[in-house]
Structure formats: C-alpha cells, structure tokens
Write a protein that binds this DNA or RNA. Structure first.
Lengths: 208, 208
DNA sequence: ATCATAATGTTACTTTTTTCACAATAACAA
DNA sequence: TTGTTATTGTGAAAAAAGTAACATTATGAT
C-alpha cells in the first residue's frame, strides 16, 4: 500500500493515544476524541482510517481494542522487531538503555562499536565489535539499524550495514546519507530540531 | 515573517551543506549543488531563498560566505543560544554530553532533575535541583528548554517551565503535551521514528 | 414501529506545497 | 561590441494535503 509518511506517523500517534484512553478505562472512541488527542481534525482521523480500510460504527464510533489490533497490524507491531545500535557513544548508549522501545515491541538485540574498550560481550545487551556486525545481522535476521556514530564515519557504516542486508536505518548523524536502492534512511537531527524551535521562538518574540 | 516549518528545516540543511562545501574549499555554489546536497530539487532551493529575499547572481550562483551569513541571521545563529535540559536520565544526560550543539552555537547552560543523587552543582555543566529552575531561567534569560523527563511528569514540568518564561520546548516524552499560548513545543519521538521506519521497510519487503 | 439523533464515510472544495518551464540577465568569449 | 551560455528568479500548472459539508445509517427513545 502506497501511503504518505505523515499518515503513518499519525497512525502511530493514534495508537499511543488509544493506549492511554484504554488505560483510563475507555472501550470506544470517536473520531473527534482521537483528533483532540493527537492534534488534528476529526476528518483527518476518519480519512486516515478509510485509507487503511478501518471502519467504525455509524453511531458507536470505534472499538478501541479492535482499532488497536488493526493499527498494530498495519505498523507491523504484531511481532517483535529486533534492531541493532551502531555506535556506543553518548547517544548510542542512551538509546541502548532507553526503556521506551521495548514497550513498543522493539528490542535492541545488540550494540556495536569499533572501540575495544566499549565491548562487553556478556552483558544482557551485548556490545560487540563492529567486525561481527555482518554475522550478527545475517544470523539474527536484523533489518533495522540505528546509526549513532560520528558524522565522519556515518556514510561508511551505512554502506557496511546495507551490504549486510539492513533495509532501514535511523540515522542520528547530522548529515544526509546516501543509501543504496532498497534501504530507507530516516533522520533524527537534534541540532535542526533545536534550530527550528529557536527560529519560531524568535519570530514569535519579534511579532509580539 | 510567516513561513512553513519545512522551509525552515530546509534552511538548516542548506546551512549544514554549505559548511561542508566551504570545508572542501568551495567559495560559490549553485542551486542544483545545494539541491543534491539536501535531497530536494533546484527549484525548491531557489524558491526558499526567494521567500527570504536571498538572491544570487545570474550565472555565478551564490557566494557561500554571504549565503551562510544570511541563513545564520535568519535562523538566529548570529548569537549564542542558551538552553536548559530538564531531566538527567539516560536521554537527558546524553544530550548534556552531546558535542553537536555547541558547534551550532547552542549552549546547554544547565541541567535540572528532582533526584538529589543527580545534582552536581560544581560541574562545568551543573545539574541543579528542579526547584531552582525558575530563578535560573529568570536570571539567565533562558527561553528554550529540552524536556527529557518520564512521560508521566512531562506535562507538569512543561507547565512549570512555561510559567517561568520558557517560550520553546523540545520534548522527548512520547506524548502530546498541551502548551499555553505563546509557548511552542517541538516533539522528538524516537519510538515513532522507528515505527515509521519499520512500516516502510515492511511495505518495501511486501511489494518486492 | 417510527422518529430523532449522533457519528461515520465520502465527495467536493480549498489551501499548501512542489514541480515545471522559461524569460531575464550576468559573465565570458570571440 | 555582439553573441552565446549558464544560471537565477518567478509565474503558472500540477500534485498533495487538509477542510468542510453532508448523505448515510446504526442506535436508542418514544
């Protein structure tokens, strides 16, 4: 199914909102509740659902449980997703320790680094030398890698892991990487996020 | 000036690309070089520039140095931006140690946490108790805060810092926060970034 | 059984963003 | 000086995203 990136991001947000509503004891939800929860209009919610053939009831809205099942299935969350982290520096280590992923069914299977001092083979979350990444990816069937290496090394590491079968990369290095056909790169650029915020705060100050 | 968020993000990317080109010894640049570097078309580059009244030379392209000056001025990078980090957990600590910000003229002035064990008042980058955040924001004139606190505390901390004069928040908690008029929130949601990547990798697998 | 109501699902409309195309023009060569 | 070329700057066209409106229909009340 061919779909806009924004639409999928909203799907994730709906999912998160639905879990919160479920925790609060709700069983069903209306498009405008969800709209409020994620900050869009009700029409967008219904349209997004219609794109994926998700339907509700003319008066009763949507059953949260069924909705979550469908969204989770679309997002591939009906099975555990194993990822690896390359780079055990500040950001990489923080990501490896971050608990937010596992409650989303995302398991960090291992970390990798070139610095021998960072290797820790017998940890619950092992940190392995980068030379072993190929075998690991192959044997564990890993498709997704998080790249948290210095800028200068990013492209090289991307080429390496793509040649080992990685299909998707979440890149934290603040530069645009060139990926081979068949490998998707999503960027998280913290500097740019901050710059953007600074810009809009400044604009707001000036127009005040 | 009223402008789309995407346009500002591209401006940041142009800037980064320009610095790289400058390092490589280039003095001038054409719209299609920049377009390649950030992954858009040349027309977008020229249009973005025209929005901000940035002009080049028919035939000669753009002088990188002048271009950088203008972009930096638009992005507010002609002066040091001081920010604070709230939450000294895994992500917060990693951000405080991250060197990427300072080379962008962004200085983390202090970290804050409620856990007394995390306080370290005499460090180069002090970590202070959250009670002191108000005085700090006021006395240092801080406008931007990075929020790296547990989900459950995020809204409360946002309300607190906004009441102290914070105008912009970069939020790492994976939920939508409600901010008062006059305070902008940008979200960095790592789970959603990964989910998104997983979705598109799965789609690519299926359609293969 | 019938009616009123409330929410969906979809179609048509509007706005925004992107792409395309090309006139204008600065630089350089002959 | 004249002509050629390369690149900008922009206006029009196309595509995408978002909004609004409303016909449809399930639900519950009378």
């Amino acid at each position: 199914m061919i779909t806009a990136k924004n639409c999928i991001i909203r799907l994730s947000r709906y999912k998160n909102a639905l879990y919160r509503l479920q925790t609060l004891g709700f069983v069903k939800v209306f498009s405008d509740n969800l709209a409020d929860a994620v900050g869009v209009t009700a029409a967008v919610v219904r349209k997004d659902f219609s794109v994926f053939g998700i339907s509700g009831n003319k008066k009763g809205g949507y059953q949260i449980e069924i909705l979550l099942e469908k969204i989770n299935s679309i997002l591939g969350k009906d099975r555990l997703q194993k990822v690896i982290v390359i780079g055990a520096g500040h950001i990489g280590s923080a990501l490896m320790r971050y608990r937010g992923f596992e409650k989303e069914g995302i398991k960090i299977a291992a970390g990798f680094d070139i610095d021998p001092a960072k290797i820790n083979r017998y940890n619950a979350l092992p940190i392995l030398p980068l030379e072993e990444v190929k075998d690991f990816i192959k044997s564990q069937g890993i498709k997704i890698a998080i790249l948290a290496v210095p800028d200068i090394a990013a492209q090289e590491v991307l080429d390496l892991v793509c040649s080992c079968g990685i299909k998707g990369i979440l890149n934290f290095a603040p530069l645009r990487l060139i990926s081979p056909e068949g490998c998707i790169v999503n960027n998280v650029n913290l500097e740019i996020e901050l710059e953007n915020l600074i810009y809009f705060v400044n604009v707001a100050e000036k127009t005040k």
